[in-house]
């Protein structure tokens, strides 16, 4: 009788334990907060009939930036710690109007918009990378209010009322200006860090961090999320064009951009938790 009781008790204990182990994963899922998935919109500039800038050795901006964008998309998808959903405005050599890129990004409900470009200048000496974010407030105004001489009299120019339509359009991006500025800052710091490391052959990339700048961009106008535009290098500069042709350089760029995105999204995940 005692044996039966003991075996019954053991069976009950075993059943309880088994039930416990089955339930455990459910309990874990219930306790852990849901992981925020960041939708990263990557926008490789130009494409199709719009080749963008062209280097003296024939490197086309549309091809170079597509390669960087695809590398970045792959790196983001491979990330295990954080969850990213990558959305590319174009994944092939195709012309897409700017307004379509903007509406595509907005409809996808992106959290971050990253436009990738390659630069060019009339001066072949210009080189380096720079990060832009959209800004109307400071755009063009520095020149307009200075005193100028003309036809023998001095006149102080009056600030002109901007059409309200323009203001409404720009408010969409101005709303995210602080975040865009923060992201731009993170990208320039992380890209510099990644690019200045010695190369596989022990040499260094000849590169210059031209910093964070602001301008009124057509492709960032109306984008309803924090947005930056990365000018990876100058195709009009021989050294820069050589860099952009190298896979190693593109991988460094991607490494820097990835670090910046991770740091930015981590900060914003924490902010969301705090606000809860």
């Amino acid at each position: 009788m005692g044996k039966i009781t003991v075996s019954c008790l053991l069976m009950v204990a075993a059943a309880l334990l088994a039930q416990d182990t089955i339930k455990k994963p459910e309990i874990q899922n219930a306790v852990l907060p849901p992981v925020k998935i960041f939708k990263i919109v990557i926008d490789p500039g130009h494409g199709g009939r719009d080749g963008g800038a062209v280097g003296s050795q024939g490197t086309k901006e549309k091809d170079a930036v597509l390669e960087v964008a695809n590398l970045l998309a792959k790196s983001l998808a491979d990330e295990t710690e954080e969850r990213f959903k990558v959305i590319l405005t174009r994944a092939e050599d195709r012309f897409i109007p700017l307004e379509d890129r903007i509406s595509f990004a907005n409809q996808a409900g992106g959290d971050v918009f990253i436009s990738i470009h390659a630069n060019s200048s009339e001066s072949k000496k210009d080189y380096g990378f720079e990060i832009y974010y959209n800004s109307l407030a400071t755009d063009d105004s520095s020149f307009g209010v200075v005193k100028r001489e003309n036809a023998g009299f001095k006149e102080k120019k009056e600030a002109q009322n901007v059409d309200s339509m323009f203001v409404l359009w720009d408010l969409a991006q101005n709303e995210f200006q602080k975040e865009s500025m923060d992201l731009a800052d993170k990208v320039q710091a992380a890209v510099e860090e990644a690019v200045k490391k010695p190369r596989a052959n022990g040499k260094m990339f000849y590169m210059r961090n031209r910093g964070v700048k602001q301008a009124a961009f057509a492709v960032l106008r109306g984008v309803r999320m924090p947005a930056v535009l990365i000018e990876t290098s100058y195709l009009s500069n021989e050294e820069d064009e050589n860099n952009l042709k190298k896979l190693e350089f593109k991988e460094r760029l991607v490494e820097g951009i990835l670090t910046a995105i991770k740091s930015y999204t981590k900060k914003n995940s924490n902010l969301q938790e705090v606000s809860k």
Binding site: G45, D50, L98, E99, D140, S141, G144, A215, A218
Partner: peptide, 18 residues
């Protein structure tokens, strides 16, 4: 015109700048 080379927004009154 929205833009010239596909970057800057020129569909607005423009002021000078350095």
């Amino acid at each position: 015109l929205k833009t010239l080379y596909g970057h800057l927004d020129v569909n607005r009154p423009l002021w000078g700048r350095t």
